[in-house]
Computed example of a mutant assay.
Amino acid sequence: MRCPYCAHEDSQVKDSRPTEDSTAIRRRRQCDGCGARFTTFERVQLREVGVIKSDGTRQSFDRRKLEQSLSLACRKRGIEQERLDQLISGIQRQLETSGESEVPAARIGELAMEGLRALDSVAYIRFASVYRDFAEARDFEEFAGNVRDAGRGD
Rank of each mutant, 00 (worst) to 15 (best):
E67H: 03
Q12F: 10
A128M: 03
V13N: 08
Y131E: 11
T23G: 13
D149C: 04
G35R: 03
G145P: 03
Q86M: 14
Q68I: 03
D133S: 13
Q94R: 11
G50R: 06
Q92G: 02
T57L: 07
S11K: 02
L111E: 09
E9R: 09
G115L: 02
R138S: 15
Y5C: 11
L119P: 01
Q12L: 15
M113A: 10
F38E: 05
Q86S: 15
T23R: 08
P104E: 14
R75W: 10
S129R: 01
A73F: 04
Q94T: 06
T40G: 05
R126Y: 07
R47H: 07
S89T: 06
D21V: 08
P4H: 07
R58V: 06
E110C: 01
G151F: 03
F38I: 09
L72N: 08
G56H: 06
K76P: 07
N146M: 10
R47Y: 06
K76E: 13
Y124R: 00
R63Q: 14
D10Y: 08
R148I: 14
D85Q: 12
I108S: 01
L116V: 03
R126N: 15
Y131I: 04
A135S: 13
R63D: 08
E110L: 06
D133Y: 01
D15W: 07
A118L: 12
G56I: 08
R152S: 13
E110N: 04
E142A: 15
R63C: 11
T57H: 07
T19W: 02
V103F: 05
A7M: 13
S11G: 13
S11V: 05
Q59P: 00
A36D: 12
D55T: 06
P104G: 08
R17M: 11
L70H: 02
I125R: 00
Q94P: 01
K14I: 15
R126I: 10
R27I: 09
L116D: 01
P4L: 06
Q94E: 15
S69W: 00
F134C: 12
S89D: 15
R107P: 00
E136V: 12
E82A: 15
N146I: 04
G109R: 00
E82V: 15
Q59H: 04
T97D: 09
C3R: 02
G50P: 00
R28M: 11
F143L: 08
D55P: 00
S54H: 09
